[in-house]
């Protein structure tokens, strides 16, 4: 579904991605794990078109998408839940969800809104509240719901567990698996390697802008190098 080859991205003179290659197949949950500064968020931003790569290709369903504008990429079916949730704090919950469907012209937006409210009933209760008044966990639910409103075929999630209580993290990850089970392919970026690998089909380990390891998630969970570096063994 998505094939990235030798991707390089620069911030000024700093080379943040040093030739990353990865592949996501339809229906999978793929995770990118690694420490701070490894290039996980940069990879997602480059896929979404927020950063233009200096080299390499991103092919989505057979089409080259690197260099396309972010709004064009959303229309092709790739949505991102950004790091730190980034809900529109002064817009209401409902307005945030409407913004998620901004690029759509079809008549089924209302149905999808109901689906999102089905996944996250708390959002329905709070639909008239400004998003800034929600708790961190609720904001994460809103950020995910908002991305789903675009009806993505590929959902990019950046650190959905960040700063949340373990119980809420569990809920969010159950919902992520639920979304995947309903047919959305997922690319999950996480610092919480154990959690990410336990829900993913495959994983890539990023270090200083390069892919160090790539394997099935189960095997990575038992890989001594991963256990040592990321799982606290």
């Amino acid at each position: 579904m998505l094939v990235i080859k030798n991707l390089e991205t620069h911030y000024g003179n700093i080379r943040a991605l040093k030739g990353i290659s990865l592949e996501i197949k339809k229906g999978e949950i793929v995770t990118l794990i690694g420490a701070n500064g490894a290039g996980k968020t940069t990879t997602l931003k480059t896929i979404s078109g927020l950063i233009k790569p200096t080299r390499g290709t991103i092919t989505y369903e057979g089409q080259e998408i690197s260099g396309k504008a972010p709004d064009a990429i959303v229309q092709m079916g790739i949505s991102q839940v950004p790091e730190g949730r980034r809900v529109f704090t002064r817009l209401t919950v409902l307005e945030n969800l409407e913004m998620g469907a901004y690029a759509r012209r079809d008549q089924e937006i209302g149905q999808d809104m109901d689906k999102v409210f089905g996944l996250f009933p708390i959002l329905k209760e709070r639909q008239r509240q400004p998003a800034g008044t929600l708790s961190g966990g609720e904001q994460q639910m809103l950020a995910i719901g908002r991305a789903l409103m675009a009806r993505p075929k590929l959902l990019l999630l950046d650190e959905p567990s960040m700063g949340l209580a373990p119980l809420i993290v569990r809920t969010i990850f159950n919902i992520i698996q639920n979304i995947n089970a309903q047919g959305t392919t997922i690319l999950l970026v996480e610092q919480n390697a154990h959690l990410a690998l336990s829900v993913a089909d495959r994983g890539y380990v990023l270090e200083t802008g390069q892919v160090q390891l790539a394997d099935e998630a189960k095997k990575l969970l038992n890989d001594p190098r991963v256990r040592k570096a990321y799982l606290g063994d």
Partner: peptide, 13 residues
């Protein structure tokens, strides 16, 4: 409020 996130919504900023 947030241009980058607006772009991620498919808004042509």
């Amino acid at each position: 409020l947030d241009k980058e996130t607006a772009a991620l919504m498919g808004i042509n900023v």
